[in-house]
């Protein structure tokens, strides 16, 4: 069985790229650690979307769904752990400013 990837791929890809840019910008331009976490989340959303689209277009939706469910579980754990790291940083420095994480040199 062969299929041809339809032109609609480009539509989906465009929106994937937009979400990706948004997430990266949010992650890199902000100075608040919690908002970095939000940027990370937006990045993960974009990837989730892309995996589903890939499954949809290639006819492997069941596989893609299985992957996405695993990705979501991983995403939750990563968010919790990163939140813990941010909390620890806040308790130590009483600050959420990203610039305080740039002391190391060399």
């Amino acid at each position: 069985m062969t299929i041809v990837i339809p032109q609609s791929f480009w539509l989906y890809f465009t929106f994937f790229a937009l979400l990706l840019i948004d997430g990266l910008w949010c992650m890199l331009a902000t100075r608040n650690l919690v908002r970095v976490l939000i940027g990370i989340e937006i990045l993960m959303k974009s990837v989730t979307f892309f995996l589903i689209v890939a499954g949809y277009l290639s006819g492997r939706m069941a596989l893609a769904q299985a992957l996405v469910i695993t990705v979501i579980v991983i995403e939750v754990v990563v968010v919790v752990v990163v939140a813990g790291v941010i909390l620890g940083f806040f308790r130590k420095r009483d600050s959420l400013d990203v610039r305080n994480t740039r002391d190391m040199k060399g």
Partner: peptide, 26 residues
């Protein structure tokens, strides 16, 4: 925390790259 933070940020970017790649392979 600083060391962990940098590792986390780059790890997540790496994850995004790998997952996108998996999408393309699919």
């Amino acid at each position: 925390f600083e060391g962990a933070w940098k590792y986390i940020l780059l790890s997540i970017i790496a994850s995004v790259l790998m997952l996108t790649s998996i999408g393309f392979f699919l």
